[in-house]
Design a protein around this nucleic acid. Sequence first.
DNA 1: GTCTATAAGTAGATAGAC
DNA 2: GTCTATCTACTTATAGAC
Lengths: 195, 195
Amino acid sequence: MARTAGSHSQTTGPRVHDAALRLFAQHGFAAVSMRQIAAEVGVQAGALYNYTPDKQSLLFDLMRGHMDALLGERAARGGRGSPLARLEEFTRFHIRFHLARPDAVFVSYMELRNLSPENFAAIEGLRRSYENELEGILRDGVAAGLFAMQDTKIATLAVIAMLTGVTTWYRPAGRLSVDEVETVYWDMVRKTVAA
Amino acid sequence: MARTAGSHSQTTGPRVHDAALRLFAQHGFAAVSMRQIAAEVGVQAGALYNYTPDKQSLLFDLMRGHMDALLGERAARGGRGSPLARLEEFTRFHIRFHLARPDAVFVSYMELRNLSPENFAAIEGLRRSYENELEGILRDGVAAGLFAMQDTKIATLAVIAMLTGVTTWYRPAGRLSVDEVETVYWDMVRKTVAA
DNA sequence: GTCTATAAGTAGATAGAC
DNA sequence: GTCTATCTACTTATAGAC
């Protein structure tokens, strides 16, 4: 099997997405020009329009791709077991998934303002359905007498905010492995919702 | 005491800051032009430069003003009492302070990327010293056997992330008062760090 | 599929009149 | 302190050659 292009084995399409994601995460969507993305890929600006109709669609595709990956992985795991076991699985998954793709997480969270209204509604719907899985786990736990909280919806958002916050400080070269970080957060989540 | 300018009693300087804060929060720093800010204030773009040397300084002034207000209020309260009482006071303060100025919170959090390196370092230092107060409370509580956690620094960041997350969903017209929201979050924070 | 060239508009910032 | 006018540079997006 011959290599077709050395280390540049990716086709231009995915390279445009990768470059845009990295640049949007670093400088912000509005601060990045199509020329900068093109330069990062190694083509001229006009060539980008073979892969996206416009800059807005490029942002939307990145965010939808991220949410699709998130929900796709959740669907593949299903939710069996006790609410406590499901909550631990969800917690560890959330940490691991988010730490594995910091740029996509950052962009999907910070650039919601720069989506057109229709695109914003689409991403919001996907995010909502992710939250709903956690809320279902919490409700089941409360019903079973395992968990206790004053407000299930607020607890859902509080737990997700706490967990997603890991992306602001975690660095792969740091003293803790992802597995250890998962355990530290699981300990806190468990106590937060404990009966 | 005569009114000097009817409902437009503010001088232009503060009005520039208010308009910039609102627009930066809504659309993002990079997406807002000096001309848009000027239009919001009701002057021409050139007039803005009587109040700021450039756009970057305008952003920095907004963020530094926010952090100064945050740290100023903390300094005015001091930290007496048991770690548990101090943690409750900190929690309720954080919620109340952040819900009272959503635009400043949003800008200070989302626009860090758009600060020059020196300005970024300055804001980071202020944010760090705010976190340090909470970390001190948690350490004291652990030393007193009141709290338990695997990692004080991570717990500090986790609690702040959980609390700051309130700004993503709270709306003044919602079903809960700020006081009730404080109580819901305090219940979760208390359990998160409980021994 | 990528290039060059360009259209049409906007950006931050400054100069000088009033 | 605010205005108008302007400089220089950059923006997204398109057209048409290769």
